[in-house]
Nucleic acid binder design. Structure first.
Lengths: 337, 337
DNA sequence: GACAGCACAGAAAAGGTTTTCTATAATAAG
DNA sequence: CTTATTATAGAAAACCTTTTCTGTGCTGTC
């Protein structure tokens, strides 16, 4: 691969030193005669010169790159986050590496190493390996090392580790949606959660339990099934749940994907939503509006969260702890009893 | 931001020259004594040294970065592609920039420039600004410049421009799904397409027309509505279509998002799928299976296509032209008349 | 026993930048 | 008129690598 136009070419053509060209490009606070600037700018335009980011990176020991680590980029949940991240990054002159771990902590570790090698400006975590006991230690160690060199790390799904975050209160989320069902007259309410060791899952489940207990309703384990936050997982978990317990009038799903699967499972059993079983969930991914029935769900501002994480990395204070608001979007998957 | 461990630190500690360390890292075909290699490797391990990609990039004038340009990363269609791309890239030691254009050609141009500044190994296009008359020229110019320096460009949605591609035959796709409806006894078949100037849209629509004409069925413009490939677009277009023409027994949607919106619109009108109106589409995004009714659609191997595009960039021949197979996934959104 | 070849290793150059240091001329201050 | 300051600009060093060049012993061949 041949080299492109370099700063040296520009300097030669404009009959100035590379120093001057560099000063103009980075427009630093150093006086350069208007005439010179103009001439150089013209040559830059003519030659279509653009600085080599790698070289800048070496010299400045910094980059305009942001790393985003997700479990599954094809999941709308992460897709919305990724959109917020990439759009905001672009606005701030950055590019984003997106790293798809598939919930494989070994890959995640590898990604962290790669991101470090690229001296990224910061890393956005959206959950991941921190909940795997055997990797947690290794991961934390690596994160510490990175932070030591000024790399910024922020999470959108804190997992009991002290670090900057932009999140929603998952416990509250679980409580709110459950309370919504209770307020609509439901008493027998099931819960389909995510992976049992994942912090987000645990919190949302605790919120559910809390609301149920406050209302003195039964929330024993037979009212609970857990999945993996996927549609297929939700489908299967819902089938299990309906086998465990037959008198549910409503199910609280830990995320929208689960709700999609659950509603499909409910139909499979010859039942209807919301006539026979009401469904509520957490997330509000874009398709929620067009589902049948349209899904009542607690809206999480995914896009905004991605955006804010980037803002933190690029411009933010040394540490942030932001808890976003989440509001219920009422549609038609919950019936008044 | 302080610098990390460098190759010099390793060399000093292992009492060898940086040359030797470099040779070991890149394990080139140059003899280095087993004992030396071992010693250096140990120091690398101890110091947790990893090479600085920026510096490597400058010297080698090459990178391990792949650029992926999409219109909307939160759309499952692009999400699947992105997953294929990032996973395969990772497998080959590469990282991927994902660039979200939001169908804004100005942003796209900016992204291309940034990717070039990073000297990415290659760029994967998934449609985009090439269909915008005023940007086409500029874009092609830029792509040419990049190619001249060895940067590889491949598209997953050719737009009448000669370049390497991995695609499906969109004309055939449109024909096949329409024929499927015809084979199931439908005669009055509507079509909801994507943006009218987009190549993919045009091709799929031509396929529809071709099948209809072969069967001597009416496919005048009143049977057609166009959207923007989104769920909301599909919803609105379907409403328009049902107003234009009242005797449709089936609608052919140019992609799954449109189908999602269309089915919602059909319900809105008090009709049912497939009882009153059958729906077929193209794509098979992951949620198609869990929709109500489960969607009959022509499966496009998005993930595979992303994967193959990466393979081309990293290892492939100088030029590729691959047309993937697409197969109908029969579910329950089409009724036999 | 001379000479070719090879295994092994380091010094130095090169890659495209930015930054620091040095230099010159012009202007302002005394 | 001298001196201090400032505007302007270039030379050279630095950033972390890889690659080319040079060099030293050793093995094997005739």
């Amino acid at each position: 691969m041949e080299h492109g136009i370099t700063i040296v070419d520009v300097a030669r053509q404009a009959k100035v030193s590379v120093t001057t060209v560099s000063r103009i490009i980075n427009n630093v606070s150093y006086p350069v005669a208007a005439k010179t600037r103009e001439r150089v700018l013209k040559v830059i335009e003519e030659l279509q010169y653009t600085p080599n980011k790698a070289a800048q990176g070496v010299r400045k020991n910094a980059s305009d790159i942001i790393g985003l680590i997700v479990r599954d980029i094809s999941d709308s949940y992460f897709g919305e986050i990724a959109k917020g991240v990439t759009n905001e990054a672009s606005k701030l002159g950055c590019l984003s590496f997106v790293c798809n771990t598939g919930r494989n902590p070994h890959d995640e570790l590898k990604y962290h190493d790669l991101l470090w090698q690229h001296r990224v400006k910061g890393i956005i975590l959206t959950g991941g390996g921190l909940d795997q006991v055997d990797y947690r230690q290794k991961l934390l160690q690596q994160l510490d090392r990175h932070r030591k060199y000024g790399l910024r790390i922020v999470t959108l799904a804190p997992q009991g580790v002290a670090m900057p975050y932009v999140m929603i209160n998952d416990f509250e989320a679980g409580r709110i949606v459950t309370q919504y069902l209770i307020d609509h007259g439901h008493k027998k309410i099931g819960f389909i959660g995510g992976p049992q060791k994942v912090f987000t899952s645990i919190e949302r489940y605790s919120g559910y339990q809390n609301a149920m207990q406050d209302a003195s309703f039964d929330c024993g384990t037979e009212y609970t099934a857990s999945s993996d936050f996927s549609q297929t997982g939700g489908y299967e978990a819902c089938l299990r749940l309906l086998q465990q317990v037959s008198d549910c009038t409503a199910i609280c799903c830990a995320n929208d994907n689960i709700a999609v699967g659950a509603m499909s499972a409910i139909r499979k059993m010859g039942l209807k939503t919301p006539k026979d079983i009401s469904i509520i969930s957490i997330g509000d991914i874009s398709e929620a509006k067009y589902m049948h029935p349209p899904l009542t769900t607690l809206r999480i501002p995914h896009y905004e969260m991605g955006k804010m994480a980037v803002d933190y990395i690029v411009n933010g204070e040394d540490n942030i702890k932001i808890t976003m608001d989440a509001t219920i979007i009422e549609r038609q998957s919950v019936r008044n009893l």
